[in-house]
């Protein structure tokens, strides 16, 4: 799920760049200084996660983990995703550099949504927290597919067709990421619950 160079029309690429830069600036301002080490670790994980391929029939899809980034970082998630995608496009040639804005929106908006939702629905108990983690983890990938479809309307694709393909191809990823998020959240809940507590200051 990466948009390559030259797929989007110029106006769309420039517009998404502007929105992404604005969101990144907002995200940086929202980031508390004490959270920076956490941001670094989660960004590194996000950067590397896309190299983990899940074989699926003749093709393979890779992990995306926008949901988990959102859960762990809250409003700082956008800068994390933007930085990770910038380095991915520079070093791995995943997605084009001109499509960086669109790719950041595609991963960053689901991350913010997942973080906001997680802060909203996580309860006090372990079960409720884990359930919220699983839902938000799966939701991140689903939303990413939806945003991809919305972005590709501008290049003349048909929305429902793209959305269907993206969602069907990523069904295993959705399941795997829900499981990974649930596992991570349950582990953190037991070991270091304060990592989950202040995830999205805006929602609390």
């Amino acid at each position: 799920m990466h948009i390559s160079d030259g797929v989007l029309p110029t106006s769309m690429a420039v517009g998404s760049y502007a929105v992404s830069l604005a969101l990144t600036a907002w995200s940086v301002r929202k980031t508390r200084g004490d959270d920076l080490p956490k941001v670094a670790v989660v960004t590194s994980s996000f950067f590397v996660a896309s190299l983990i391929h899940v074989p699926l029939g003749p093709t393979s899809v890779h992990l995306l983990i926008p949901g988990l980034v959102g859960i762990l970082l809250g409003s700082s998630a956008f800068v994390s995703v933007a930085l990770g995608l910038l380095l991915q496009s520079l070093l791995f040639q995943f997605g084009g550099i001109t499509a960086w804005g669109a790719n950041s929106l595609m991963m960053g908006l689901p991350a913010l949504t997942a973080g906001w939702l997680f802060a909203l629905i996580k309860g006090k108990t372990l079960f409720r927290t884990v359930l919220a983690g699983a839902i938000c983890g799966g939701l991140g990938v689903m939303l990413a597919g939806t945003v991809l479809a919305v972005l590709l309307i501008s290049s003349g694709e048909d929305f429902l067709g793209v959305a269907k393909i993206a969602l069907v191809a990523h069904l295993p990823v959705i399941a795997i990421e829900a499981a990974i998020s649930a596992f991570t959240v349950s582990f953190l809940y037991k070991v270091k619950p304060e990592l989950l507590r202040t995830a999205f200051p805006a929602a609390t």
């Binding site: 670094a40 590194s44 950067f47 930085l83 990770g84 991915q88 070093l91």
Partner: peptide, 9 residues
């Protein structure tokens, strides 16, 4: 990439 991230942060 990891080095860049850690360095920037």
């Amino acid at each position: 990439g990891i080095g860049y991230i850690l360095g920037l942060v």
